[in-house]
Every structure is written in structure tokens, then in C-alpha cells.
Design a protein around this nucleic acid. Structure first.
Lengths: 152, 152
DNA sequence: CAAGTTTTCCCCACTTTTCCCCACTAGTTG
DNA sequence: CAACTAGTGGGGAAAAGTGGGGAAAACTTG
């Protein structure tokens, strides 16, 4: 499981460091290469291959004769890349993905349990500035909708 | 599984490069030759032979007494070619297929799990310009139709 | 059936991109 | 305050993509 938040940079070549703690976890208990894809809210999701394969299975089982299914598949896969860590523990973010996620020079890397999220620093701050609901209130809303109970 | 997006060109002879990563996958774990066919939405689908055979099975199991089935079969097969990679990892796209898919000098090659899609660059951009529904919305639609849930 | 023509495909060569490796800096720890 | 580690930057070798010449094959035609 990935936890924690890190502030890193993206260099001229589009490379960014995977936090050392995540590197170790990946090397110890996950399959490589990694899969980098455009997730929700304009940030990138980074999955170890074993986690990604579960998503792929569902994606590829959908009916290709349905135009909306094709569109859904393409929308996800057009912004999906396999990436390898280099020996310094960095990955390259392709120009396409950088553009889609609006990624500039500074990024925030967040451990989100099964996946790692990579945000453009500014977008990250905006997101949290706009969504200043208290944890208590958010939890209450989910509970009201019957989404799930959560024992902390 | 094929993943990632690549921007390549088509030369005078109608050749285009298969991205190196796909080549390796094909050589390692798939049967050749490859099958190139006119897919949906005016792009070309490229399958390794083993994947194509499964499609052929389904195609041939359809009820031939039905006129629409026959038409479906013929429409697919009239624009289907066997292609081999040359030693540089390129395939030749026949003039017929180039015309049907409106393929000019620049193409986009996209890994779509079991298949590879080859798009004329302009057509690709148009497709995604016209279908800029957010991933969230698309997922919602599929969900509403009871197609499948997908946890990202 | 041979000669000419076209097409295919193999190979070489060039350009661009990628990626591997080394080195530097800053921050942390013993 | 030295030694380590994490993160960063850049140069050079290797690989990927591209274009074209020429030999072999196939197809035409007299």
C-alpha cells in the first residue's frame, strides 16, 4: 500500500522521481513495468502492473460492438502508458500525458493505497482549495447516501 | 496486452513502423503473421494471428441464413489482410486499406489491449475532439446501462 | 517462352529520440 | 561534521524510426 505525500520536480526530459519509499515497495512486492494513466480530476494514476491488470480485464471484457464502450476504452487507453523506473528511480511522463494532466515543472506525488497519484502542483492546490469541506462533513454525506460505513 | 500511444509516419511505399515495444510482445508471445483489418470508426485494427483466430471463430459461428450476418461478415473480410513485419519492424498497409481508413502520411498507433489500432492522425484527432465526454460521464452512461462497474 | 516491366522486399544509411550512466547538491543521520 | 541517501541535471551511447537504392520475384506482353 502506498501512503504519504511528496513534492518533486519534472526535468527537461519529462522525468520525475518516484519517492524512495514507493520504489522499495514496488521492487519488493509488485510487478513491473508500471502503468501510468490519466485518472479522474486531471491527475495521473500510477499503478503497479498487477493492480493495473485487474482494471484491464474488465476493460477488455466489454462489448466492442457498442460505440460508447469503444469510446470509453479509447478515452482511457489513449492516455495510458507503460513506464519503467530508471536506476535512479525515475519515470518518464510522456508529452501526451503531461499535456492531459496539465503537468508543468512541479508535481505532488501522493500515495493512494493501491495506486500513486501524480498532480501538477498548482492543480493539486486548487483542488484542495476548492474542496474545503471538513472531513466530518464529507463522512456524514457518504454515510447519508448509504455508500459505506467506515470504522476509523 | 498492447498499451501506449505512438505517432508514426507512412512512407511512399505504404509502410509504417510497429512501435518497438509492440514488436517485442508479438515476437515473444504471439503468432504471426498479423492480421490487419478495417475496424470501427474508420481506423485499422491490427491483431496477432492467435487473437484474430478467436474473432474468426465467432464470425463463422454466426447464422449465415441471416442476410445481415452475411453482409457483416463480408464487410469485415473484404478489408482484411495478412501482413508480416519486415526486419525493421514495419508492415505494409495495402492501398485498399489506406483508402478505406483515410490514411495519409501521419498515423497514430494505439495499444488497445488485445489489438493495435492504426489511425490517420487527423481522423484520430477529430474522433477525440468530437467525443470529448469526460471519463466520469462515459463511465456513468455505461453504468446506467448496466454494462459493468469498473473500479479505478 | 523469353524479354521487358512492375512490384515486392531486403538491406544499408541517416536522423532523432530514448535511456543509461556519471556527477552534483541538499538535506538527514549517526 | 563526515557519511549517507534522496532528488536533480546533463552528456554520450544505443535504439527506434525513417527514407531510399537495388536485387529478386512476379506479372505482362510480344
Amino acid at each position: 500500500m502506498f501512503r504519504g505525500i511528496f513534492h518533486n520536480s519534472v526535468d527537461e526530459k519529462g522525468r520525475t522521481s518516484i519517492p524512495a519509499r514507493f520504489r522499495e515497495q514496488i521492487r519488493e512486492s509488485h510487478e513491473t513495468p508500471l502503468v501510468l494513466t490519466l485518472g479522474f480530476d486531471q491527475c495521473l494514476f500510477l499503478y503497479p502492473m498487477d493492480a493495473w491488470k485487474k482494471i484491464e480485464e474488465k476493460l477488455s471484457s466489454l462489448d466492442t460492438l457498442n460505440a460508447e464502450v469503444r469510446q470509453f476504452q479509447r478515452t482511457i487507453l489513449k492516455a495510458t502508458d507503460e513506464v519503467e523506473m530508471d536506476q535512479q528511480g525515475r519515470i518518464v511522463i510522456s508529452p501526451v500525458l503531461r499535456k492531459e494532466a496539465g503537468i508543468g515543472k512541479a508535481v505532488v506525488v501522493v500515495g493512494m493505497l493501491h495506486r500513486i497519484e501524480i498532480w501538477d502542483k498548482e492543480k493539486y492546490e486548487n483542488y484542495h482549495a476548492q474542496t474545503t469541506q471538513s472531513l466530518e462533513l464529507l463522512g456524514q454525506k457518504l454515510s447519508d447516501k448509504g455508500i459505506q460505513s467506515l470504522t476509523l
